[in-house]
């Protein structure tokens, strides 16, 4: 029973996303909406992504230094840091942080627009509310998530170098050459594929929850809080599940 329920939810989520992208031009001013969304989704998330990336790299460098030293493999630090960041940590952590920062904002904004009848008003004007409000966000997510994930990887690897080579006196030269040797185009592919998938999932789920905030038996402020919580929890879970599936398929 729950399986059928989940399947039908997934179905309506996909319909919602396809509709949003299909009607993206509805209501006009698409360039302005794209710019605003890029700012909200991309620029506003830059600080948090950079800070999280830096500290993830620092910790990885630190742990890696001591753990690899046990096996006498200190020279592998660059390999460890770069591969774990690129293939796994950067896509997942960046997406979870984006869900926390941009996803919650999106779910809350749409939830309020639903509860103050703004979405109804758009529909009555003949504008597709999915296309007008959600379409640009899905489109922008397709390039903002990969770009921010790439940034996360670069800042993280630099963080690893800071703690391993600057603070713990490993050889910086061999760190960077290990990084260069470790990362293949296949790893970059995996990183960007994951970022794209997580971006679409996060934005679609959070937007879907906010857009349908009135359907969970609550009204007004409570409906917005319920939608926001559902959005961020569901997208975090979806990111981890999708991470496993994509890794299993690509490895």
């Amino acid at each position: 029973m729950w399986f059928i329920n989940a399947l039908s939810k997934a179905g309506s989520l996909s319909c919602f996303s396809v509709l949003a992208l299909f009607h993206i031009r509805s209501g006009g001013t698409l360039p302005a909406r794209l710019i605003r969304t890029t700012y909200e989704l991309g620029i506003r998330c830059l600080p948090v992504i950079s800070i999280v990336a830096l500290f993830s790299g620092l910790v990885l460098g630190l742990q890696g230094h001591y753990v690899l030293a046990r096996f006498g493999a200190s020279g592998m630090l660059g390999t460890l840091v770069s591969l774990s960041l690129c293939r796994e940590l950067a896509p997942v952590l960046a997406a979870v942080m984006m869900a926390g920062q941009a996803g919650t904002a999106l779910a809350a904004e749409l939830g309020i627009q639903r509860s103050t009848e703004q979405i109804d008003a758009l529909e009555l004007m003949g504008i597709s509310a999915e296309g007008y409000l959600v379409g640009p966000r899905l489109l922008v997510a397709c390039f903002v998530f990969p770009v921010l994930t790439a940034l996360f990887t670069i800042v993280g690897i630099t963080g690893g170098w800071l703690s391993g080579c600057v603070l713990l006196n490993q050889d910086g030269h061999s760190y960077w050459s290990a990084v260069r040797l470790a990362i293949h185009s296949k790893d970059i592919n995996e990183c960007l594929t994951k970022a794209l998938a997580f971006g679409l999932l996060t934005v679609a789920l959070c937007a879907f929850q906010g857009f349908n905030a009135h359907l969970h038996g609550e009204a007004g402020a409570r409906s917005v809080s319920v939608a926001t919580v559902r959005g961020v929890v569901l997208s975090s879970i979806a990111i981890l599940v999708a991470d496993y599936l994509i890794t299993a398929l690509l490895v």
Binding site: E109, T116, E117, Q118, D120, A121, L122, L124, M125, G126
Partner: peptide, 17 residues
């Protein structure tokens, strides 16, 4: 009907952003 009509909501439903 939707094409021909406009609606003034009781609570205005202005686009606040």
């Amino acid at each position: 009907l939707l094409k021909a009509c406009s609606y003034v909501f009781q609570h205005n439903a202005l686009f606040d952003s």
